[in-house]
Design a protein around this nucleic acid. Structure first.
Length: 365
DNA sequence: ATCCTGCATC
DNA sequence: GATGCAGGAT
Protein backbone atom coordinates (compact mmCIF):
# COMPACT_ATOMS: atom_id res chain seq x y z
CA UNK A 1 0.00 0.00 0.00
CA UNK A 2 1.31 3.39 -0.84
CA UNK A 3 1.10 6.16 1.68
CA UNK A 4 -0.49 9.40 0.50
CA UNK A 5 2.09 11.81 -0.77
CA UNK A 6 2.98 14.23 1.94
CA UNK A 7 2.71 17.73 0.65
CA UNK A 8 1.72 18.69 -2.83
CA UNK A 9 -1.87 17.77 -2.20
CA UNK A 10 -4.10 19.16 0.49
CA UNK A 11 -5.10 16.81 3.26
CA UNK A 12 -8.69 17.48 2.24
CA UNK A 13 -8.32 15.38 -0.88
CA UNK A 14 -5.91 12.60 -0.10
CA UNK A 15 -5.38 10.32 -3.04
CA UNK A 16 -8.80 10.65 -4.52
CA UNK A 17 -7.43 9.63 -7.91
CA UNK A 18 -5.75 6.49 -6.58
CA UNK A 19 -8.90 5.42 -4.79
CA UNK A 20 -11.01 5.94 -7.87
CA UNK A 21 -8.60 4.04 -10.10
CA UNK A 22 -8.33 1.11 -7.76
CA UNK A 23 -12.07 0.92 -7.25
CA UNK A 24 -12.74 1.10 -10.98
CA UNK A 25 -10.53 -1.88 -11.67
CA UNK A 26 -12.50 -4.13 -9.36
CA UNK A 27 -15.98 -2.61 -9.21
CA UNK A 28 -16.37 -0.49 -12.32
CA UNK A 29 -17.86 -1.25 -15.71
CA UNK A 30 -15.21 -2.67 -18.00
CA UNK A 31 -17.04 -4.56 -20.71
CA UNK A 32 -19.28 -2.05 -22.43
CA UNK A 33 -18.95 -2.22 -26.23
CA UNK A 34 -17.21 1.15 -26.43
CA UNK A 35 -14.63 0.30 -23.80
CA UNK A 36 -11.29 -1.40 -24.29
CA UNK A 37 -10.62 0.58 -27.42
CA UNK A 38 -8.59 3.66 -28.11
CA UNK A 39 -10.29 4.33 -31.40
CA UNK A 40 -11.49 7.93 -31.12
CA UNK A 41 -14.30 7.26 -33.57
CA UNK A 42 -15.83 4.62 -31.35
CA UNK A 43 -15.27 6.54 -28.16
CA UNK A 44 -16.64 9.72 -29.66
CA UNK A 45 -19.75 7.98 -30.99
CA UNK A 46 -20.47 6.45 -27.60
CA UNK A 47 -19.95 9.71 -25.75
CA UNK A 48 -22.36 11.56 -28.02
CA UNK A 49 -24.97 8.82 -27.76
CA UNK A 50 -24.59 8.75 -23.98
CA UNK A 51 -25.41 12.44 -23.67
CA UNK A 52 -28.92 12.61 -22.25
CA UNK A 53 -29.41 8.92 -22.93
CA UNK A 54 -29.01 5.92 -20.67
CA UNK A 55 -26.52 3.13 -21.25
CA UNK A 56 -29.26 0.55 -21.69
CA UNK A 57 -30.81 2.53 -24.54
CA UNK A 58 -27.51 3.31 -26.22
CA UNK A 59 -26.56 -0.38 -26.26
CA UNK A 60 -29.27 -1.05 -28.81
CA UNK A 61 -28.13 1.70 -31.15
CA UNK A 62 -24.38 1.67 -30.89
CA UNK A 63 -23.65 -1.54 -32.74
CA UNK A 64 -26.19 -0.89 -35.47
CA UNK A 65 -24.62 2.49 -36.04
CA UNK A 66 -21.13 1.01 -36.24
CA UNK A 67 -22.29 -1.67 -38.63
CA UNK A 68 -23.70 0.91 -40.98
CA UNK A 69 -20.91 3.47 -40.45
CA UNK A 70 -17.77 1.54 -39.50
CA UNK A 71 -15.51 4.56 -39.59
CA UNK A 72 -15.56 8.32 -39.72
CA UNK A 73 -15.20 8.31 -43.51
CA UNK A 74 -18.33 6.22 -43.94
CA UNK A 75 -20.27 8.51 -41.66
CA UNK A 76 -19.03 11.65 -43.36
CA UNK A 77 -20.00 10.31 -46.77
CA UNK A 78 -23.53 9.36 -45.78
CA UNK A 79 -26.59 11.47 -46.56
CA UNK A 80 -27.86 13.30 -43.48
CA UNK A 81 -31.19 11.54 -43.74
CA UNK A 82 -29.45 8.17 -43.37
CA UNK A 83 -27.77 9.36 -40.19
CA UNK A 84 -31.03 10.69 -38.80
CA UNK A 85 -32.75 7.45 -39.71
CA UNK A 86 -30.28 5.39 -37.70
CA UNK A 87 -30.63 7.88 -34.86
CA UNK A 88 -34.39 7.60 -35.07
CA UNK A 89 -35.81 7.13 -31.60
CA UNK A 90 -32.81 8.39 -29.66
CA UNK A 91 -34.14 11.94 -29.60
CA UNK A 92 -32.18 15.18 -29.29
CA UNK A 93 -31.54 15.10 -33.00
CA UNK A 94 -29.14 18.02 -32.94
CA UNK A 95 -26.68 15.46 -31.64
CA UNK A 96 -27.07 13.49 -34.86
CA UNK A 97 -26.71 16.55 -37.05
CA UNK A 98 -23.62 17.67 -35.16
CA UNK A 99 -22.27 14.15 -35.32
CA UNK A 100 -22.57 14.17 -39.07
CA UNK A 101 -21.02 17.63 -39.44
CA UNK A 102 -18.23 16.66 -37.09
CA UNK A 103 -17.41 13.59 -39.15
CA UNK A 104 -17.20 15.70 -42.27
CA UNK A 105 -14.87 18.18 -40.61
CA UNK A 106 -12.63 15.40 -39.32
CA UNK A 107 -12.40 13.98 -42.83
CA UNK A 108 -12.01 17.25 -44.66
CA UNK A 109 -9.88 19.23 -42.25
CA UNK A 110 -8.05 16.60 -40.22
CA UNK A 111 -7.29 13.99 -42.84
CA UNK A 112 -9.77 11.54 -41.35
CA UNK A 113 -7.98 11.46 -37.97
CA UNK A 114 -9.56 12.90 -34.87
CA UNK A 115 -7.33 15.63 -33.42
CA UNK A 116 -5.48 14.44 -30.34
CA UNK A 117 -5.91 17.28 -27.88
CA UNK A 118 -8.77 18.49 -25.71
CA UNK A 119 -8.54 21.92 -27.21
CA UNK A 120 -8.91 20.77 -30.79
CA UNK A 121 -11.55 18.21 -29.93
CA UNK A 122 -13.66 20.79 -28.15
CA UNK A 123 -13.62 22.95 -31.28
CA UNK A 124 -15.60 20.31 -33.18
CA UNK A 125 -19.40 20.52 -33.38
CA UNK A 126 -21.23 18.62 -30.68
CA UNK A 127 -18.11 18.21 -28.55
CA UNK A 128 -17.98 20.38 -25.44
CA UNK A 129 -15.23 20.55 -22.89
CA UNK A 130 -16.35 17.50 -20.94
CA UNK A 131 -16.85 15.25 -23.95
CA UNK A 132 -13.49 16.42 -25.31
CA UNK A 133 -11.89 15.57 -21.99
CA UNK A 134 -13.37 12.07 -22.04
CA UNK A 135 -12.14 11.35 -25.56
CA UNK A 136 -8.70 12.77 -24.82
CA UNK A 137 -8.38 10.76 -21.63
CA UNK A 138 -9.67 7.48 -23.08
CA UNK A 139 -7.89 7.60 -26.41
CA UNK A 140 -4.77 9.67 -25.82
CA UNK A 141 -4.24 9.40 -22.08
CA UNK A 142 -4.30 13.18 -21.85
CA UNK A 143 -4.46 14.61 -18.36
CA UNK A 144 -7.80 16.27 -18.96
CA UNK A 145 -10.76 16.45 -16.58
CA UNK A 146 -14.38 15.70 -17.35
CA UNK A 147 -17.34 17.34 -15.68
CA UNK A 148 -20.61 15.95 -16.87
CA UNK A 149 -23.62 15.87 -14.57
CA UNK A 150 -22.66 12.62 -12.88
CA UNK A 151 -19.08 13.62 -12.27
CA UNK A 152 -20.16 17.07 -11.13
CA UNK A 153 -22.19 15.37 -8.43
CA UNK A 154 -19.30 13.18 -7.32
CA UNK A 155 -16.81 16.01 -7.15
CA UNK A 156 -19.00 18.60 -5.47
CA UNK A 157 -19.79 16.06 -2.79
CA UNK A 158 -16.28 14.81 -2.22
CA UNK A 159 -15.01 18.34 -2.05
CA UNK A 160 -17.97 19.81 -0.22
CA UNK A 161 -18.13 22.33 -3.03
CA UNK A 162 -21.21 24.38 -2.16
CA UNK A 163 -20.93 27.36 -4.48
CA UNK A 164 -23.85 27.98 -6.80
CA UNK A 165 -23.05 26.35 -10.14
CA UNK A 166 -25.45 28.68 -11.87
CA UNK A 167 -22.66 31.23 -11.45
CA UNK A 168 -20.08 30.99 -14.19
CA UNK A 169 -17.31 31.72 -11.72
CA UNK A 170 -18.29 28.75 -9.57
CA UNK A 171 -18.41 26.51 -12.58
CA UNK A 172 -14.91 27.67 -13.51
CA UNK A 173 -13.67 27.04 -10.00
CA UNK A 174 -15.04 23.50 -10.05
CA UNK A 175 -13.27 22.76 -13.31
CA UNK A 176 -10.10 23.99 -11.64
CA UNK A 177 -10.64 21.65 -8.70
CA UNK A 178 -11.33 18.81 -11.13
CA UNK A 179 -7.95 19.42 -12.72
CA UNK A 180 -6.25 19.36 -9.35
CA UNK A 181 -7.74 15.98 -8.53
CA UNK A 182 -6.41 14.29 -11.69
CA UNK A 183 -3.88 11.49 -11.32
CA UNK A 184 -0.40 12.84 -10.95
CA UNK A 185 1.91 13.21 -13.88
CA UNK A 186 3.65 9.94 -13.03
CA UNK A 187 0.37 8.03 -13.27
CA UNK A 188 -0.64 9.14 -16.72
CA UNK A 189 -1.45 5.62 -17.83
CA UNK A 190 -4.23 5.75 -15.24
CA UNK A 191 -6.22 8.43 -17.07
CA UNK A 192 -8.66 6.14 -18.86
CA UNK A 193 -9.45 4.18 -15.74
CA UNK A 194 -9.69 7.26 -13.59
CA UNK A 195 -12.09 8.91 -16.04
CA UNK A 196 -14.19 5.78 -16.31
CA UNK A 197 -14.15 5.40 -12.53
CA UNK A 198 -15.61 8.86 -11.98
CA UNK A 199 -18.33 8.10 -14.51
CA UNK A 200 -19.10 4.77 -12.86
CA UNK A 201 -19.27 6.33 -9.41
CA UNK A 202 -21.66 8.98 -10.63
CA UNK A 203 -23.85 6.51 -12.48
CA UNK A 204 -24.01 3.77 -9.86
CA UNK A 205 -22.96 4.94 -6.42
CA UNK A 206 -23.14 8.69 -6.00
CA UNK A 207 -26.78 8.93 -7.05
CA UNK A 208 -28.79 12.14 -6.90
CA UNK A 209 -31.30 11.01 -4.25
CA UNK A 210 -29.90 7.96 -2.55
CA UNK A 211 -26.12 7.78 -2.75
CA UNK A 212 -24.72 4.44 -1.63
CA UNK A 213 -22.00 5.94 0.48
CA UNK A 214 -21.26 2.63 2.19
CA UNK A 215 -20.06 1.26 -1.16
CA UNK A 216 -18.07 4.34 -2.16
CA UNK A 217 -14.28 4.24 -2.29
CA UNK A 218 -14.27 7.92 -1.34
CA UNK A 219 -16.49 7.57 1.72
CA UNK A 220 -13.85 8.44 4.24
CA UNK A 221 -12.59 11.50 2.42
CA UNK A 222 -15.98 12.80 1.30
CA UNK A 223 -16.86 16.14 2.84
CA UNK A 224 -20.55 15.87 1.98
CA UNK A 225 -20.81 12.52 3.68
CA UNK A 226 -19.11 13.85 6.76
CA UNK A 227 -21.59 16.70 6.82
CA UNK A 228 -24.38 14.15 6.77
CA UNK A 229 -26.42 15.36 3.79
CA UNK A 230 -24.66 14.48 0.54
CA UNK A 231 -27.90 15.09 -1.41
CA UNK A 232 -27.43 18.80 -0.80
CA UNK A 233 -24.80 18.83 -3.52
CA UNK A 234 -24.46 20.08 -6.16
CA UNK A 235 -25.90 23.52 -5.46
CA UNK A 236 -27.56 25.22 -8.38
CA UNK A 237 -30.17 27.94 -8.36
CA UNK A 238 -32.64 27.75 -11.17
CA UNK A 239 -34.56 30.40 -12.86
CA UNK A 240 -37.19 29.21 -15.18
CA UNK A 241 -40.08 30.92 -16.82
CA UNK A 242 -41.99 29.07 -19.46
CA UNK A 243 -44.04 30.73 -22.11
CA UNK A 244 -46.91 29.10 -23.95
CA UNK A 245 -47.51 28.72 -27.65
CA UNK A 246 -50.01 26.91 -29.82
CA UNK A 247 -49.57 25.03 -33.05
CA UNK A 248 -52.18 23.50 -35.29
CA UNK A 249 -50.97 20.43 -37.14
CA UNK A 250 -52.45 19.39 -40.43
CA UNK A 251 -52.49 15.61 -40.47
CA UNK A 252 -53.36 14.30 -43.88
CA UNK A 253 -53.78 10.59 -44.26
CA UNK A 254 -54.59 8.74 -47.41
CA UNK A 255 -56.52 5.55 -47.92
CA UNK A 256 -53.34 3.49 -47.68
CA UNK A 257 -52.63 4.92 -44.24
CA UNK A 258 -49.78 7.08 -45.44
CA UNK A 259 -49.32 10.53 -43.91
CA UNK A 260 -47.96 13.73 -45.37
CA UNK A 261 -44.73 14.95 -43.76
CA UNK A 262 -42.26 17.57 -44.75
CA UNK A 263 -38.71 18.24 -43.73
CA UNK A 264 -38.31 21.24 -41.47
CA UNK A 265 -35.74 23.95 -42.20
CA UNK A 266 -32.20 23.47 -40.94
CA UNK A 267 -32.58 26.20 -38.34
CA UNK A 268 -35.14 26.67 -35.60
CA UNK A 269 -37.22 24.24 -33.63
CA UNK A 270 -36.94 20.59 -34.69
CA UNK A 271 -34.44 21.52 -37.38
CA UNK A 272 -34.15 18.98 -40.16
CA UNK A 273 -36.82 16.70 -38.72
CA UNK A 274 -39.98 15.59 -40.47
CA UNK A 275 -43.28 17.02 -39.36
CA UNK A 276 -46.81 17.61 -40.60
CA UNK A 277 -47.42 21.18 -41.76
CA UNK A 278 -47.94 23.49 -38.77
CA UNK A 279 -49.95 26.69 -38.43
CA UNK A 280 -50.22 29.47 -35.89
CA UNK A 281 -53.99 29.41 -35.74
CA UNK A 282 -56.96 27.25 -36.46
CA UNK A 283 -57.97 29.66 -39.15
CA UNK A 284 -54.63 29.46 -40.91
CA UNK A 285 -54.92 25.69 -40.98
CA UNK A 286 -58.47 25.89 -42.34
CA UNK A 287 -57.27 28.18 -45.10
CA UNK A 288 -54.63 25.67 -46.14
CA UNK A 289 -56.53 22.43 -45.58
CA UNK A 290 -58.09 20.55 -48.45
CA UNK A 291 -61.83 20.68 -48.83
CA UNK A 292 -63.63 17.95 -46.94
CA UNK A 293 -64.41 16.96 -43.40
CA UNK A 294 -61.85 17.87 -40.76
CA UNK A 295 -61.55 15.99 -37.51
CA UNK A 296 -60.03 17.69 -34.52
CA UNK A 297 -57.99 15.27 -32.46
CA UNK A 298 -57.38 15.84 -28.76
CA UNK A 299 -54.92 18.64 -28.15
CA UNK A 300 -51.91 17.96 -25.97
CA UNK A 301 -48.97 19.83 -24.51
CA UNK A 302 -45.36 19.21 -25.35
CA UNK A 303 -42.98 20.74 -22.84
CA UNK A 304 -39.68 22.26 -23.84
CA UNK A 305 -37.32 23.88 -21.42
CA UNK A 306 -38.99 27.21 -21.49
CA UNK A 307 -41.90 26.73 -23.73
CA UNK A 308 -45.16 24.89 -23.37
CA UNK A 309 -46.19 23.93 -26.85
CA UNK A 310 -49.91 23.28 -27.16
CA UNK A 311 -50.41 21.03 -30.15
CA UNK A 312 -53.75 20.79 -31.92
CA UNK A 313 -53.77 17.96 -34.44
CA UNK A 314 -56.43 18.15 -37.10
CA UNK A 315 -57.04 15.12 -39.26
CA UNK A 316 -57.91 15.74 -42.87
CA UNK A 317 -58.54 13.40 -45.79
CA UNK A 318 -55.85 13.29 -48.42
CA UNK A 319 -56.51 15.04 -51.64
CA UNK A 320 -54.29 14.91 -54.65
CA UNK A 321 -52.24 18.06 -54.90
CA UNK A 322 -53.70 19.48 -51.75
CA UNK A 323 -50.68 18.80 -49.63
CA UNK A 324 -48.38 20.79 -51.81
CA UNK A 325 -50.25 23.96 -51.05
CA UNK A 326 -50.03 23.48 -47.33
CA UNK A 327 -46.87 25.49 -47.09
CA UNK A 328 -45.02 27.56 -49.56
CA UNK A 329 -41.48 27.20 -48.29
CA UNK A 330 -39.39 24.87 -50.34
CA UNK A 331 -39.22 22.18 -47.68
CA UNK A 332 -39.48 18.81 -49.37
CA UNK A 333 -42.41 16.71 -48.33
CA UNK A 334 -44.01 13.44 -49.19
CA UNK A 335 -46.36 10.64 -48.29
CA UNK A 336 -44.95 8.18 -45.81
CA UNK A 337 -46.27 4.77 -44.84
CA UNK A 338 -45.83 3.77 -41.18
CA UNK A 339 -42.78 1.64 -41.91
CA UNK A 340 -41.24 4.64 -43.62
CA UNK A 341 -41.94 7.39 -41.11
CA UNK A 342 -40.89 5.19 -38.24
CA UNK A 343 -37.39 5.30 -39.75
CA UNK A 344 -37.33 9.10 -40.02
CA UNK A 345 -36.07 11.65 -37.57
CA UNK A 346 -39.32 12.75 -35.95
CA UNK A 347 -39.85 15.10 -33.00
CA UNK A 348 -40.91 13.06 -29.98
CA UNK A 349 -44.48 14.40 -29.78
CA UNK A 350 -45.00 13.85 -33.51
CA UNK A 351 -43.78 10.29 -33.22
CA UNK A 352 -46.20 9.70 -30.37
CA UNK A 353 -49.04 11.27 -32.28
CA UNK A 354 -48.44 9.20 -35.41
CA UNK A 355 -48.16 6.01 -33.39
CA UNK A 356 -51.49 6.75 -31.75
CA UNK A 357 -53.03 7.42 -35.11
CA UNK A 358 -51.63 4.22 -36.56
CA UNK A 359 -52.90 2.25 -33.57
CA UNK A 360 -56.40 3.55 -33.90
CA UNK A 361 -56.25 2.15 -37.37
CA UNK A 362 -58.82 3.75 -39.54
CA UNK A 363 -60.52 5.31 -36.52
CA UNK A 364 -62.40 7.59 -38.82
CA UNK A 365 -61.51 9.26 -42.06
C1' DA B 1 -21.40 35.87 -20.63
C1' DT B 2 -26.10 34.97 -21.35
C1' DC B 3 -29.68 32.75 -23.28
C1' DC B 4 -31.78 28.87 -25.95
C1' DT B 5 -32.83 23.96 -27.09
C1' DG B 6 -35.56 18.90 -26.97
C1' DC B 7 -36.45 15.40 -24.27
C1' DA B 8 -36.20 12.09 -20.17
C1' DT B 9 -36.69 11.35 -15.63
C1' DC B 10 -38.04 11.82 -11.06
C1' DG C 1 -45.56 18.72 -13.40
C1' DA C 2 -41.03 20.36 -12.26
C1' DT C 3 -36.13 19.87 -13.11
C1' DG C 4 -31.79 18.82 -15.39
C1' DC C 5 -28.48 18.13 -19.11
C1' DA C 6 -24.85 19.44 -22.54
C1' DG C 7 -24.18 21.55 -25.99
C1' DG C 8 -25.14 25.74 -29.60
C1' DA C 9 -26.30 30.57 -30.81
C1' DT C 10 -26.12 35.31 -29.99
Amino acid sequence: MSAPAAGGRGAAAPDVAARVVQWQATHGRNHLPWQNTRDPYRVWLSEIMLQQTQVATVLGYYQRFLDRFPDVQALAAAPQDDVLALWSGLGYYSRARNLHRCAQIVVEQHGGQFPASVQQLAALPGIGRSTAGAIAAFCFGERAPILDANVRRVLTRVLGFGDDLAQAASERALWQRAEELLPREDLLQAMPRYTQGLMDLGAGICLPRKPSCMLCPLQDVCVARREGEPERYPVRTRKLKRSAGSWWLLLQRDAAGRVWLQRRPDAGIWAGLYCPPDFDSHQALMDAAPAGPLQELPAFVHVLTHRDLHLHPVLAPAQPGAAAQAQEDESPGGWFAPAQWRALGLPAPIRTLLERLAQDGGLQN
